[in-house]
């Protein structure tokens, strides 16, 4: 079926089986490879995007649900060359190691800061439950606090 939505500010119409996970439409249909496949079971969070501002794990989201919605992926987080506060903080804290899980974490963090502009450590623990194997959580926590500051200023 045909499904239309906005992705990173652009309107798109895609032709796909309605139950195709949004992840594959984004990655293979639209060629936006920043959203990652980690588990396909909504367990790791590497595929996190925003749908109407909320964090959604796109591997477990049938594309039909995206009809008429607004999607943001890591490619749409920055405004042109200007980094999003979350990306800026990620750079300043030198967070990534292998980097594979990072887009999912950054998308989840961006959604968190929209809901909770000054998250406490507990807020972070409760809302950011993606999986990172390199163990960058320690720096991510610092980067999340830093992003909150950058966003406020």
């Amino acid at each position: 079926m045909k499904i239309s939505f906005t992705i990173n500010g652009k309107t798109q119409t895609v032709e796909a089986d309605e139950n195709t996970p949004l992840l594959w439409v984004i990655r293979d249909g639209l060629g936006l490879k920043g959203t990652k496949f980690g588990c396909g079971k909504a367990a790791c969070g590497a595929c996190t995007v925003q749908v109407d501002g909320g964090a959604v794990r796109s591997c477990s989201y049938a594309v039909k649900f995206a009809q008429g919605k607004s999607i943001t992926t890591i490619e749409g987080l920055s405004q042109g060359k200007e980094l999003h506060p979350v990306q800026q903080a990620w750079v300043e804290e030198i967070v990534p190691q292998c980097g594979y899980c990072q887009p999912g974490f950054m998308m989840a963090t961006a959604a968190l800061l929209d809901k909770i502009p000054q998250p406490s450590d507990d807020d972070i623990d409760e809302n950011i439950v993606n999986v990172c194997r390199c163990g960058t959580y320690y720096r991510m926590r610092k980067a999340i606090h830093r992003a909150a500051k950058i966003k406020q200023s």
Partner: peptide
């Protein structure tokens, strides 16, 4: 769910046959 980790982050309005969610 919590403010940013909503049930709907993973659970949609029907079962997902691919993920088993």
């Amino acid at each position: 769910g919590t403010l940013s980790l909503r049930c709907q982050t993973c659970h949609q309005s029907e079962n997902n046959p691919y993920s088993g969610v």
